[in-house]
Write a protein that binds this DNA or RNA. Sequence first.
DNA 1: TTGTAGCCTTTTTTT
DNA 2: AAGGCTACAA
Length: 728
Amino acid sequence: MENNLLNNLNEQQLAAVNCNLGNKLILAGAGSGKTRVLTCRVAKLIDSYDVKPSNILALTFTNKASAEMKQRLEKILKISSYGLWFGTFHGICRRLLKIHWNEAGISEYFTILDSQDQLRMIRRIIKSKNLDENLYDSKHLQNFINSQKDKGLRYDSSDNDDDKYRDIFRDYDLACRQTNSVDFADLILLSYEMLLTNENVLNYYRNRFRNIMVDEFQDTNTLQFKFLKLINGSSGSLYAVGDDDQSIYGWRGARSRNIQSFKDEFLDVEIFKLERNYRSTNKILSVANSLISNNKERLGKNLWTDTEKGDPVYLYEAYSGDDESIFIVDKIQELIDGGLKRSDIALLYRSNFLSRRLEEELNARSVPYKIYGGFRFFERSEIKDVIAYLRMAVNNSDDAAFERTINNPPRGLGEKTIHAIREYSKKNKITLWEAIHDLDAIGLGSTRIINSINEYKKIINSIYQDLTKHNLKKIIGNIIEYSSLSKHFDSKKNEEALSKQENLEELLSTAERFYQNNIDSEDIVVEFLANAALEAGEYQSKAHEDPVQLMTIHSAKGLEFPVVFLTGMDEGIFPNENRNINKDFLEEERRLCYVAITRAMKTLYITHANARYMHGSNNFLIPSRFISEVEDGLIEPIKISRKYRENVKSNNLNHDFNEFNQEGSFDNFSQEDNSNYFRVGQKVNHMKFGNGVILSYTGKKEDLKLHINFEHYGKKWLVLSYAQLDFL
DNA sequence: TTGTAGCCTTTTTTT
DNA sequence: AAGGCTACAA
């Protein structure tokens, strides 16, 4: 092994890289160089232990982490990494099923259902069973089914007392098999079951993958843990890298307790710790450590650094979401003018919807940016439409794709007709596609319906013919043409349809790019479909080479940026209020915040807004509890400048200078679109002063309570924002 | 019977 | 804002 590769590793890192074969657990704090250790370890295996790349299986959780590590590996490994299996759990399991579909008892051309497809399927089953949809909520059942599968359980062993739950679970799985569909959890569960019941296959992979590397081990769920245990066997070497403080996928069934279980359930586990942080300045790390020390459930480690103290961690308390984004983009422009690359700046947030206002401001001021995740490209409805046609051609038993395409664009086949087809297919246990070949038997005789269905069959068959004749781009282009989707959007002529047209264009170049990147692929169409389901948009156009980076904290895990803006640090948004705030949930949110803070290398800005437009109305917000949980003195508030106040006044409130007198009545509140909340001349019953005002008054219909965020402005008051509060 | 305009509800995070 | 649902026009 080239020595210079190891030259820059510290003692702890060297120990973790140079250890002998066997099961290892690396407890690696944030920014402790774990990706480097992992990549060096792969190099070490190949160079010193005579391991062939094909004897290595490397697993990650997110596509981005996977791409990042692949890139680093290719850079470090001078020799070919041919045969090394590398990818996400889901990606690797898809690969296994693609090879061993026969042993797994599924069709060769299975379709991967994304959560939306899955939900529709479940909804259909609940409907067909005539169950009360309030009692059997489809989302709830989706969670139930997924959580069972994530534990490795099928319907017959599932832990729910309600037999109906099991029935739906069973019927859903049957429907999946019948339509050659596989959901996300199934990718792993079917692989697991396939290995469990096929000794030869299991032995082959045990033998082949004697070295398994798993990154972000704290994110493994019960099923993934079982899967690893099974394939590792008693002679394999599992190299697991994880950090319990960065466990943020509990809601998806991840059990950070797997870190402890690893010690107990795998043979002779040796443990290494990486505690020195190289990434962040002392100040940033202090904030992170101070916050995470509020968590009780920790294995405990001592992350330290001897890097410079660095800039303070700043807190900006904005008046509103508008103010927040104006402040951020101002700062970004300042930083860029100072010579910083745009891509060195990341804007992180708890929920995708928070990106919208930030995007607007970046757009308005022509700052190039790239947004990861969010409304993903392959989740846009028009893209899913085209993809569904392609899915139908590849796997015509794909009922989900059938339902999506049969009357889209509208060709005169409505609910009645489709219902009849559905019933017939259910009765005869055939797919919807097969059903439309028996129109007589269904009793659909009208010429209009027959013509429409024949037209549909023709489209699908033409696409099928194209599969072997044309390249990917041409196939997709033809789908858009055959299906008349393009014509359909053309005829609409509104802005929305126009952007859909543009997205279809984009899909064509995406297809071309995918083809160029996978030129050796044997079955490009099938790979493309898998990519659409599993990666939902990695091949999106790169708008600019040097864009500001926008993403959720979840997708930022494993990445680092010189400058980070942690936005939307408002109670209710972060920690998120949509779930009951129990202790475990809160600890996970806190870990998520810890992850966000530790992404920053040099500078960290935390922003909070007193009011934010969300859920269709203006909401008053207080700063996230996580801000006050940090020890005093570690975070430096930024004084609100006059400039931002002007912005608030002029741009953001259509009732900028509203006055109301202390005796308690509104004088001239302009109401316009806010009449829900305010009426002119309303009597004020009660008023309380504070950082905001809580004020209740009697309205025409009922008593309402309002939150007013205001500031003294001379002798008058400037109302900055207000919101109805129905929970007080 | 189908298509569609407009109303209502609802939005965590990822594979 | 986007999907689901309802009411009504074709």
